[in-house]
Design a binder for these strands. Structure first.
Length: 556
DNA sequence: AGGTTAACTTAGGATTCTAGCT
DNA sequence: AGCTAGAATCCTAAGTTAACCT
């Protein structure tokens, strides 16, 4: 027992997850910290003249300088917030009086060169930190997820976040509370002369370390990796709950359909909101503070986010999680159309569509329909059932690659339902260009082949190739075969190009990682003799170990 | 009843790795 | 062998949920 630690006893925890016991023994080595700042001494220019900076001022200037090629750099809010924090470090009487007269090019160039040099000498990928990588939970060695404490940086919030560009200060051991087994040795603080904030022994929670985020008023946690049995267990429970929804969904749908026309507005709003969450896989939509980006989910939809298009279509247009835009026009049952019209009536654009509703009321209602049901369960359900049904319907006998295409098609459908997007890859334009070029080349080649076919039919020798090479003298049938091959090749490339264009903003990974019950994929692989390695990367295989022994006839 | 806090899941972008090409 | 596109992994922001507080 190490109850004689020098650390203050923490007062009883407030809400702590579900309060259930998460482990019996827990041993780990704490966390690591980024290296302290090494000043480079490169001077920036102010109104064209070099300026010396203190190491602290230089560190923050460097964070800004290296972001020159990012979208953030020219955002007024980003510059304003950065200048606020950096200006404070410079002090009121500093030579530098405004940001726009600063030229960070010397530091930017220095950084480019550093990166180049690092690439050249790809040494030191040493396994330092190896000991931090593992925890022992109930006697089992498990991987730790994120034992590296976040380095200081300029805050990169998504979308129009009011705090972008603010300095996220360095985290020290005195910010970190560790959670560890009572009998485990307390990890030595990795920074000499410093000490942890606190040590806890709370086995009702899963985190190993916690600190307060300096930018937003929220906690950051260190916990086990997704491959741990603890996380695996939770993951399985999540999918089991979503499967349970299958038994209730018909009655839930009947209930909300009936309530589309309820007299009570609140009841009607709950019905329509539940419908949207079910049909469109919308997120619940919690209230957000003024110091966050303005995004919405179902319960926080504004009047301006939903347009009624006669006779019975709704157009949704809003910024959701991560400020990703959701645009979708759907046809709805007339009672839904009518209800939405009623909710919009007499309000201004920025008013709440569901003024009688919030996530706690909604979830409270869902719990009456099915034990432990919450809004997010519908997303999991929708995604997984879609994959299960599509794979059963679409998979044909054939080669593995064709089956994988079917899977990706289903995966893509899910990603679209869930609105999982990515930004267009930088090289997308070039890639499309290259494909188009190849297709053009093939078409030219095709012309030549056709000419030669005609000539062969007339008994003439083939033309000299465009590349100046002599072409063999072959039969018309052989030319026809070549032409058919070439056309197939062209069609394939055209297909590639079309799907590349279609997929350019669709992100498949998020649903695979978080929404698709891995047992659907594993059982499908077993039924169709597709190696599971083809579907899951190494880390996903580790995350989904709990699903690997599923029966081939598993249905979600 | 509504606000706050805590804990855990989900998310896209950045960075790093790797396989399949010249 | 060296390059590079795309995949994999890393990073950390931004959601959801429920219990507690007032």
């Amino acid at each position: 027992m190490t109850k004689d630690s020098n650390y203050a006893k923490t007062s009883k925890a407030l809400p702590s997850g579900d309060g259930k016991k998460k482990w019996t023994t827990l041993v780990h080595n704490g966390v690591t910290f980024p290296p302290s700042y090494k000043p480079h001494g490169i001077k920036i220019l102010y109104k064209g003249k070099p300026v010396s900076l203190s190491p602290e001022q230089e560190e923050v200037a460097t964070m800004f300088a290296v972001m020159r090629e990012t979208e953030y750099y020219n955002k007024p809010k980003f510059r304003e917030n950065f200048w606020n924090d950096w200006g404070r470090l410079l002090g009121k009487n500093h030579v530098i009086q405004n940001l726009d007269d600063c030229d960070f090019t010397p530091i930017y160039d220095w950084n480019l060169k550093q990166k180049e040099e690092k690439k050249g000498s790809k040494e030191q990928k040493s396994k330092q930190g190896e000991k931090y990588m593992w925890a022992i939970v109930d006697g089992v060695k498990e991987k730790v997820g994120n034992f590296k404490i976040e380095p200081p940086a300029l805050f990169r919030g998504r979308g129009e976040h009011p705090k972008i560009g603010k300095l996220k200060r360095r985290i020290h051991p005195c910010d970190i509370t560790l959670n560890i087994g009572e009998d485990a040795p307390i990890p030595e603080c990795p920074i000499p002369g410093e000490r942890w904030k606190d040590i806890k022994h709370d086995n009702t929670v899963t985190w190993l370390a916690i600190w307060n985020d300096p930018i937003n008023k929220r906690y950051k946690y260190v916990s086990l990796s997704a491959s741990s049995s603890q996380k695996g267990q939770r993951d399985k429970e999540k999918y089991e709950k979503a499967r349970k929804l299958k038994d209730y969904i018909d009655s839930i749908r009947a209930t909300y359909t009936k309530n589309f026309t309820a007299k009570d507005v609140s009841k009607r709003q709950i019905a329509v909101a539940t419908y949207l969450i079910d049909k469109l896989a919308l997120r619940a939509g919690n209230e957000k503070d003024d110091d966050e980006a303005e995004t919405v989910g179902c319960c926080t939809l504004k009047v301006e986010n939903v347009e009624c298009i006669p006779p019975n279509k709704l157009k949704f247009d809003f910024l959701g999680k991560d400020s990703i835009r959701y645009v979708n026009t759907i046809e709805v049952e007339p009672p839904v159309y009518k209800a939405i019209g009623q909710f919009r009536a007499g309000k201004s654009n920025s008013d709440d569509l569901f003024d009688e509703l919030d996530t706690s009321k909604l979830n409270a209602h869902l719990k009456e329909l099915m034990p432990d049901l919450t809004a997010k369960v519908f997303r999991t359900f929708n995604a997984s059932i879609t994959l299960d049904v599509m794979l059963r319907q679409e998979t044909r006998d054939g080669d593995v690659d064709q089956k994988v295409v079917v899977y990706e098609q289903a995966n893509k459908e899910v990603a679209i339902i869930c609105n999982h997007q990515r930004s267009v890859p930088k090289s997308h334009g070039a890639q499309i260009g290259r494909l188009a070029g190849k297709i053009e080349q093939l078409r030219e080649g095709l012309k030549e082949l056709k000419t030669n076919l005609e000539r062969a039919r007339k008994g003439k020798a083939p033309l000299e190739g465009a590349d100046g090479k002599k072409t063999r003298n072959i039969t018309p049938e052989a030319w026809e075969k070549k032409i058919a091959q070439q056309m197939k090749k062209t069609e394939k490339l055209e297909g590639d190009m079309k799907s590349k264009e279609e997929f350019k903003t669709v992100s498949l990974g998020t649903s695979k990682m978080n929404y698709l019950d891995p047992r659907i994929t594993v059982s499908w692989c077993k039924r169709h003799e597709v190696p599971i390695q083809k579907m899951f990367s190494k880390t996903l295989l580790e995350k989904f170990t709990w699903a690997m022994d599923v029966e081939p006839d598993f249905r979600f």
